[in-house]
């Protein structure tokens, strides 16, 4: 556990390799129960379905649905704007957790400055403001209720 806790010393490449091999393993080890979408791999997607959302609706339904219902989904800030593209040839780094400095800042620089002056430097915006589940409509699932309750 302590090793894992101190994982910030691991370079991101190791994380990626681990993730990669994990999904590879999951795909090959339990062939009987893998889900439908898992058969399509990044980079082998049929041309007319290349929009990330089309596949991720099936493969990661919760993440896809969260995005769709979120502010970002509502105003069409699409997957690749923050997460980059799988072949790694894009300008945005391909990652699950986008970097504040290179991604979030493009639109939210004023908010980031405000939050920093209020609360000091935190690790990630996402810790408190969940990208996907920040909803446009009042009372929708996942709206940052915790904050309202505890302050």
């Amino acid at each position: 556990m302590t090793v894992l806790r101190n994982k910030w010393i691991l370079i991101p490449a190791v994380v990626l390799v681990l993730l990669g091999s994990y999904f590879l393993f999951l795909n090959t080890a339990f062939t009987g129960t893998r889900c439908e979408g898992a058969r399509v791999k990044h980079g082998q997607v049929p041309e007319d379905q290349s929009d990330c959302y089309t596949c991720h609706k099936k493969t990661t339904p919760k993440a896809a649905q969260d995005w769709y219902e979120s502010k970002h989904g509502m105003i069409l800030v699409k997957c690749y704007v923050c997460h980059g593209q799988p072949d790694g040839k894009g300008a945005v780094p391909f990652t699950a957790t986008p970097s504040v400095a290179t991604v979030c800042q493009r639109c939210h620089a004023p908010a980031i400055d405000l939050m920093q002056s209020k609360f000091g430097v935190r690790d990630q915006c996402e810790t408190c403001h969940m990208f996907h589940t920040s909803s446009l409509h009042h009372g929708a699932y996942g709206k940052s209720e915790s904050k309202e309750k505890f302050e």
């Binding site: 129960t33 889900c35 990661t60 339904p61 919760k62 993440a63 996402e126 810790t127 408190c128 969940m130 589940t133 699932y141 996942g142 940052s144 209720e145 915790s146 904050k147 309750k149 505890f150």
Partner: peptide, 20 residues
Amino acid sequence: SGLKEVPGVLCVITAYLNIE
């Protein structure tokens, strides 16, 4: 949402999800 209401919890992130 239940987790968010547990006393002492500030916020919750879903890290991993496998709906099978």
